[in-house]
Simulated assay, not measured.
Amino acid sequence: MRQWLLLFVDYMANKQIQAGVLNYMTGGSDRLCMLSGDVLDNALATLIARAKQSGEIVLAVEPIDLLCAVAGIASFGADLDGEVSAKRLVDIMIAGLRNGTSTGGRW
Rank of each mutant, 00 (worst) to 15 (best):
A43H: 14
S36P: 00
G37D: 13
G27V: 05
N99W: 09
L6E: 11
A43F: 07
L22W: 04
R88T: 06
S36F: 02
Y24D: 15
A69T: 08
D41P: 03
V58K: 14
G37N: 12
L89T: 02
A51W: 05
L97A: 01
A45R: 06
M1I: 02
M1R: 02
V84W: 07
S29T: 10
L22K: 04
M25D: 11
S102Y: 06
R31A: 13
Q18G: 11
M93I: 04
S54V: 08
Q3D: 15
L97H: 00
R31T: 07
Y24H: 13
G28R: 10
K52H: 10
G105L: 03
G55I: 05
L6P: 03
L44N: 00
G55N: 11
D30E: 15
K15S: 12
I92D: 15
Q16A: 10
E56N: 05
P63W: 03
V58R: 15
L5N: 00
N42S: 15
M34D: 13
L59R: 08
F8N: 01
T26E: 14
Y24T: 15
V61M: 06
M1V: 01
W4V: 03
G104D: 07
D41A: 10
E62Q: 12
A45C: 10
G105Y: 05
N23I: 08
I73R: 01
S36E: 12
A51T: 04
N23K: 13
V21A: 12
T46S: 10
V58P: 08
G96Q: 04
V61E: 01
V9M: 09
Y24S: 12
A13H: 05
R50V: 14
N23L: 06
I64S: 07
A43S: 14
L89A: 14
A86D: 02
I64V: 14
D10V: 02
M1K: 03
G100H: 03
I17G: 04
D91C: 11
F76Y: 14
A74N: 00
